[in-house]
């Protein structure tokens, strides 16, 4: 148990400290790196409570894909401009009400979760859940997800698909004047259309179109 406690406290301290550093660090790229560290330590905590599938999916999806895109966006930002607009100056006061609302919401959510855990422990009792049976975490997740919650699963899939189509539609623009490579056109070219013999008048030359 001691080793378990040591690992738990190491990961949770790293998680909390890096979560604080996400907001505290001045450099946005550093905060994304702290966010990644946070994700990794949280997935380690998931693995420690026996939810190895969730932990690995967290690593693959959040760290392997989402955070990479975060990094992309943040690296493209102009950091010098940011310093003037967002962090220093009077404009930051506009963001205070939004921040206050969000943090109050999160605060009440945490109160509800902790209160439920304290006063209605049977809801969160791990013995009631499926993880106590002999089958592995991944199997039990699959058996629940594709039977009892199949509609919720399909609806969330549909929402993601719609979001993806929406994002593509919003960013799609037809650019004119682009030369596109057509493999079929290239392969099906004959010698007769490729080579042309011309009578060249002297001092006039030949104009080759595009």
């Amino acid at each position: 148990m001691i080793a378990h406690a040591i690992f738990f406290y190491t990961f949770s301290i790293i998680a909390v400290v890096s979560a604080i550093m996400v907001t505290a660090s001045k450099n946005t790229v550093h905060s994304v790196f702290f966010l990644i560290l946070d994700f990794i330590s949280i997935s380690c905590l998931f693995i420690m409570i026996g939810a190895e599938f969730l932990g690995m999916i967290m690593l693959i999806v959040y760290v392997g894909a989402v955070a990479v895109l975060f990094l992309f966006v943040v690296m493209m930002l102009n950091v010098a401009q940011q310093k003037n607009q967002w962090f220093a100056g009077q404009q930051s006061s506009r963001h205070i009400p939004v921040g206050l609302i969000i943090s109050t919401l999160i605060f009440f959510e945490i109160i509800i979760v902790i209160g439920g855990w304290k006063y209605k422990p049977e809801i969160f009792d791990i013995n009631n859940s499926i993880s106590q049976t002999s089958i592995s975490n991944t199997h039990s997740l699959g058996q629940i997800l594709y039977t009892d919650y199949i509609h919720v699963f399909q609806i969330s899939g549909m929402i993601l698909l719609v979001a993806m189509v929406g994002a593509i539609v919003l960013t799609f623009r037809q650019r004119s004047g682009l030369k596109r490579q057509s493999y079929i056109k290239q392969i099906s070219r004959e010698r007769t259309e490729g080579v042309e013999v011309l009578e060249v008048q002297s001092n006039k030359g030949v104009k080759i179109d595009d």
Binding site: E52, F53, M56, L59, I60, V63, G64, S136, N137, T138
Partner: peptide, 18 residues
């Protein structure tokens, strides 16, 4: 010999980009 070995391999190889 972990239960989710292939996911672990996949996760680590996807972290390689960092």
């Amino acid at each position: 010999d972990i239960n989710v070995g292939i996911l672990y391999l996949f996760a680590v190889s996807s972290l390689g980009v960092y």
